[in-house]
Design a binder for these strands. Structure first.
Lengths: 350, 350
DNA sequence: GATCGATATGGGATCGATCTCACAGGGAGA
DNA sequence: TCTCCCTGTGAGATCGATCCCATATCGATC
């Protein structure tokens, strides 16, 4: 591989001149520029990333930690990150944190060892103290996405769970549903609480309160959706609508409803959250609250890039709006004659 | 950040000794070892990846190019790669090739610039000549996965499309189907041809040939599945089974079948390929040939790691077996009395 | 004509590790 | 006692870039 010295010799200039040309700073005469460009072309010269990084203390690598790289949800986010990073000439290394505190710590430390210019974290746990200190010492800027707050973060991107859940619940209420079950994810997640507050807001708009619906806390899993729904059909047969904590829960609920011979949405309505890959492939198509996680990845990366450029982030917290995706799994409540009020439009609150 | 010199001073030895200790080669006395370990601990020393890489010409990074990072299919493969790489202390940088020759070229060049120790490629096009030369010049070992052959690759991992398609077709034949449509992906893919040869083999086992079924070539997309199936229902109403080129095609086919009021599998059977995330969420659950793409990612990475260790790869081509996943979308042919022969067992050849 | 700023270039130190080589000490064998 | 090998250590060169500083030329200004 050709080095900068080879180029400089071939072009009859010093390494400094070549370096200046590549970096695009400092003065370079037209004559020198042409000679150097020709030499670069001829030798097929490509700067050595390691040497550059060692000297300038930049790697042009952004580190990302998500819960699970293999999951379609995070894959979309990674796609968004990568797309944005690529246009700034940076690459992304991602690692999985597996929702485990020590795995998350390990992943972060490994990324910092690689001298990442910055970190984008989607974690499920608070950072370990030693990791906090390592991050601080390395002065690596951090942007977090979703989940909980995280001390060293210079900026945070969240998805507007509250407004999304509010829009979803309002849709159900608008359709005349009053016996509603909310099959929530675990209470350890910030998301869960935000969604609940949105649900409260929608209820309040109809003169109702949390106690007027049935809420069960479980996990974000198909199994939970299936089991809780099966139980629900027996113990609360008056239920006309299920609002699932996410699309996996909804998929499980749908299995249970079909097993029980319930028609969706004629007998019971089903509403999801996320707009997973399979939401549209369910039968009936799942009406759901879309979380634009790819957009979150893009925004987080853009924030990080601006921090790296020395600009302050656009805002310390950026909230990505959700969108209500209307498919076929939600309909009017079965006991009511269909006098739907205006259906809530796709809510795109900022 | 502490450097190796800081450590050596604190421990009262030379940098060489510290380096030897870390690398685990050469002689280090117990006394020195203890002193150095204490110093490392105390200073929180972590070796600088850039400096090490510059000198030793290794980055401990493996580069991966897949068609699309955001897609669940490739996300699974990336997960497998990462898991394996991590256990060897290496990280992975992935890029999308978007099935475009120039995008693929760009991604590879970028990864080579990062001085990747090796590349794992899942491409859809032949490599551009200039890229071939750059790879050769950099002496970076390459392992390819799926898709077509690729000159510079030291080893190749393929998924056993032929045997998988054979098992799928045999299942349909076993169930008495004789009016079968195969909605294939594009003919530019090696996969397509391999699957067709497997289909031929299954047909031959029943004394049939390719001409005895209907084959249509399109693309690996839901749209193709939907349109082709809709046409099929009109033009070839005798069809009792559709074998889809992949699960996306199958999902499209299912939409068309439902739109036409056909019951699956009572009136028409549907068989997929891949076992995508949504295969089990379709209604009925999609019977399909599973491609263990996560395993392919793991195997490819293991191959690359062994090449990097100087060992020859276990084999130049490693074929990952597929698995027939039985769900509900395939049943006996409608005109036949249900005298199914033995249903083909889940085929796990070689 | 002296001074100053802008343009243009080169020399060498530097980043933090690895790696080769030289060398010292000690025990074994001739 | 001398040689040889094994253990253990350190000095210094090296990887390939960037970056600071010195310097040279030229035109404009005083």
């Amino acid at each position: 591989m050709a080095t900068i010295t080879d180029v400089s010799k071939k072009a009859g200039v010093s390494r400094s001149t070549v370096s200046r040309l590549i970096a695009g700073n400092g003065y370079v005469s037209d004559e020198a520029r042409k000679a150097v460009e020709a030499a670069i072309q001829e030798l097929g010269y490509r700067p050595n990333t390691m040497a550059r990084g060692l000297r300038s203390n930049r790697s042009d690598i952004i580190g990302g930690v998500v819960v699970n790289v293999s999951s379609p949800f995070y894959a979309q986010m990674i796609g968004g990150m990568q797309e944005t990073a690529r246009s700034a000439g940076k690459s992304i290394i991602v690692a999985s944190g597996y929702a485990d505190r020590d795995e998350e710590a390990h992943a972060i430390i490994e990324l910092l060892d690689r001298a990442c210019d910055g970190l984008i974290l989607y974690l499920e746990n608070a950072l370990r103290d030693d990791v906090l200190e390592i991050i601080a010492r390395s002065k690596t800027p951090v942007v977090t996405v979703g989940g909980n707050e995280c001390p060293p973060a210079r900026a945070r991107v969240t998805i507007d769970n509250a407004t999304g859940a509010e829009a979803g619940m309002r849709l159900l209420l608008d359709q005349g549903h009053r016996h509603i079950a909310y099959l929530s994810g675990g209470t350890i997640y910030r998301d869960t609480h935000e969604r609940l507050s949105g649900i409260d807001a929608a209820l309040a708009g109809f003169g109702l309160a949390r106690d007027d619906i049935y809420v069960e806390h479980g996990s974000f899993s198909e199994t939970f959706g299936q089991q809780a729904s099966a139980r629900l059909l027996v113990e609360r047969p008056e239920t006309t609508a299920i609002f699932a904590g996410d699309d996996d829960v909804a998929a499980g609920a749908l299995l249970a409803l079909k097993a029980a011979g319930k028609r969706v949405p004629e007998e019971i309505s089903l509403l999801g959250f996320d707009d997973n890959f399979h939401a549209r492939h369910l039968t009936p198509g799942l009406t759901t609250v879309r979380q634009p996680v790819d957009e979150a990845g893009r925004v987080a990366t853009r924030l990080l890039l601006s921090i790296l450029d020395g600009e302050p982030p656009a805002a310390p917290v950026i909230t990505i709006p959700t969108e209500l995706i209307m498919r076929q799994s939600v309909g009017p409540a079965r006991s009511l004659s269909p006098t739907p009020r205006t259906v809530a439009p796709a809510l795109t609150a900022s």
